[in-house]
């Protein structure tokens, strides 16, 4: 087995006539943390959504742990079982309690017993620092708590890779750090992560690799040290100056 957790090679995607991803090549090694940034509409969310086939790519290959993503439902199921996803809008199930949100996947998709699933759920709720909210409905929690429940829900599936699609963009400013703290802890524990975010402080702290996308292309990628201090392309320099000037 190669140590590449995710490999994208020559990935292209169109929405109708709109060429949203152009020849994306990207390798994420096991344990690596990759941060993707770029202006809105640059295709960064689409890349992440292609990795677990929430969007279909039309050209190129995507491999997760060596398994290629094809139309075969089996390959999609295999890959989804190894890839967790955290959404901008949390997407918690509002009709279920927090605990039920966390146990649904393990019980129905993994075949765990209720008892096993609940033990696991409580373990991960403790890990995201909200052990005592298990019996509440998601809508009774703050945004930051909801996003941490969403992270715990992904962790309950014990994925090899976690994808984050702008996890803090829908949060009030005072709640961003509680979510980022959890993400930093996950990073420190060795989780393989691909994070679409504009939180450059987080990126500086945990990223092994920075990706800058614009207009459907990866314009620049590199170690955060070089990336932030000495961006090579004009577009990247401009973008960084815009988001870092505050």
């Amino acid at each position: 087995m190669s140590d590449a957790a995710i490999e994208l090679a020559g990935v292209n995607k169109w929405f109708g006539d709109f060429h949203v991803l152009k020849n994306i090549d990207l390798t994420v090694k096991t344990g690596e943390k990759v941060v993707v940034c770029g202006p809105s509409g640059s295709g960064k969310s689409t890349v992440v959504r292609c990795i677990n086939q929430l969007e279909k790519h039309q050209k190129g290959t995507i491999r997760v742990d060596g398994v290629e993503l094809t139309d075969d439902p089996k390959s999609v199921a295999t890959i989804r079982s190894e890839v967790g996803m955290v959404f901008q809008q949390f997407n918690l199930f509002p009709h279920l309690t927090v605990l039920e949100n966390l146990t649904l996947g393990p019980i129905k998709a993994r075949g765990l017993s209720r008892k096993e699933a609940e033990e696991k759920a409580r373990h991960y709720l403790a890990r995201v620092h909200i052990p005592d909210q298990a019996d509440k409905r998601p809508t009774q929690l703050s945004g930051g708590q909801q996003q941490r429940v969403a992270i715990a829900r992904s962790l309950c599936m014990e994925p090899r890779v976690l994808l984050f699609d702008e996890p803090t963009s829908a949060l009030d400013p005072e709640m961003i750090s509680e979510v980022l703290d959890v993400m930093v802890e996950l990073a420190e524990e060795g989780m393989t992560m691909v994070v679409v975010t504009h939180e450059m402080g987080f990126a500086r702290k945990v990223a092994d690799k920075m990706i800058f996308m614009d207009a459907g292309e990866i314009v620049e990628q590199g170690h955060p040290e070089h990336f932030f201090t000495n961006p090579q392309s004009e577009r990247c320099r401009k973008f960084l100056s815009q988001i870092l000037q505050h």
Partner: peptide, 9 residues
């Protein structure tokens, strides 16, 4: 989408 990502068919 959330249901799909936690493995539900």
């Amino acid at each position: 989408e959330a249901a799909q990502t936690i493995g539900l068919n």
